[in-house]
Nucleic acid binder design. Structure first.
Lengths: 210, 210
DNA sequence: AAAAGTATCACCCTAAACAGGTGAATTTGT
DNA sequence: ACAAATTCACCTGTTTAGGGTGATACTTTT
């Protein structure tokens, strides 16, 4: 058996039972090798560079520095490693912070063992493993609201505003008069019941009109 | 066998071989029922409301109206149905347009048959099935650039700017002086080599600094 | 064909925001 | 202790934003 082609996996998880459970599972699966297990980020930081894992399973609730905050630091220590979040939490803000910080996947802890192995394999093959519910939330985050009160043109103009363009510039880019842009903006403000750019953008974003 | 608890599936796909292949596969799987197969959106539009599927498999390359453009229309006809995109295309803009228009999943056509069945099941259970490569792209779209030249404070201020807030308002919300905000903005502009809000936002977005 | 909705442009007004230059004190992080 | 980051000050002038009121033309729907 080609030991040197094994996928090298490290685990950062404070609960010893869970940590050793994963280590046992992965260590006893052919093609996978556990290079290290750590109960906290602080512990991992010292040894993990030497252990050089391909994939890192990371818990979000850790003593000391949280998994989320540890993520960018771990990314710096191991720029090439894939980091998979393993957690019980399914809060949107946590998920998006983790993905924004460079996590390559997000699994909930009820994930059956064979799926964890599959996820490690998948991330090595260029995939982005997620638990079903997480995937749904991620997809939903892209979904626009069809019930927008804004017309197509108004939506278009609000989008330009939302990237900081001035009315004059919008007018130029859309080949319409500045007065027309102003007119649309007035209508947008009325419909959204706001009196400023910032509030219009916020209202539209919150309601997924843009 | 409880026929009336079957998951009702419809297929819109112009290639007859593929279409009938899927129909055969799904129709012969216990717990699934094919309520209709259509070669185009125009065909589907007439009959699909009556057929009332739970899940709709939708191809993106269709004669006449494309699958992407058909998506919002189909959503109107069948607001409760889940729509799964089935396509050979993996272009980012197509993926995000589809998800923005309300697709609940995105599968590539090399997906093995058992995974298609699994995806239909998954979407009915609250998941968001995606092919591995698609999931990776979706996750990557959230990933920030760690190599940002901006400091934490500068990034924070640029984020406030990007949602349309005025300098004065930013100063108030961050409990710092207006002059300080201006100072940060000057530095941001220098670092990004721009001379306006809009260009700063664009540069930062393009590079995933915010 | 009429009505409703959308998109277009015009002219008025005032206050606020923006962009840029230069310099400097203070606080943080390593 | 040093460098980087954050904070504030004072100066200049130009541009933008927000709001009121009204009107014309093009689409879509009824």
């Amino acid at each position: 058996m080609a030991r040197d082609l094994d996928i090298r996996v490290a685990i950062i998880e404070d609960d010893e039972t869970i940590r050793e459970g994963y280590a046992y599972l992965i260590g006893n699966t052919e093609g996978y090798k556990v290079t290290g297990t750590y109960p906290s980020y602080e512990d991992a930081a010292r040894k993990i560079a030497h252990d050089d894992p391909d994939v890192l399973l990371l818990d979000v609730e850790l003593p000391g520095i949280s998994g989320i905050d540890a993520l960018p630091k771990l990314k710096k220590i191991l720029p090439e490693a894939y980091i998979l979040i393993l957690t019980v939490y399914e809060q949107e803000d946590l998920i998006f912070r983790a993905l924004g910080s460079g996590a390559s996947g997000y699994l909930t802890k009820n994930t059956p063992h064979e799926k964890i192995i599959a996820a490690i394999h998948e991330v090595m093959e260029g995939g982005g493993p997620m638990s079903a519910h997480i995937a749904r939330m991620v997809i939903s985050s892209f979904k626009r609201n069809e019930e927008t009160p804004l017309t197509r043109r108004e939506t278009e103009i609000l989008e330009h505003i939302s990237i900081g363009k001035s009315r004059k510039r919008i007018a130029q880019e859309l080949f319409i008069d500045l007065e027309t842009v102003k007119s649309h903006i007035k209508n947008i403000y009325h419909k959204l019941n706001v009196h400023s750019k910032a509030d219009a953008i916020k209202a539209a974003r919150d309601n997924k009109f843009i």
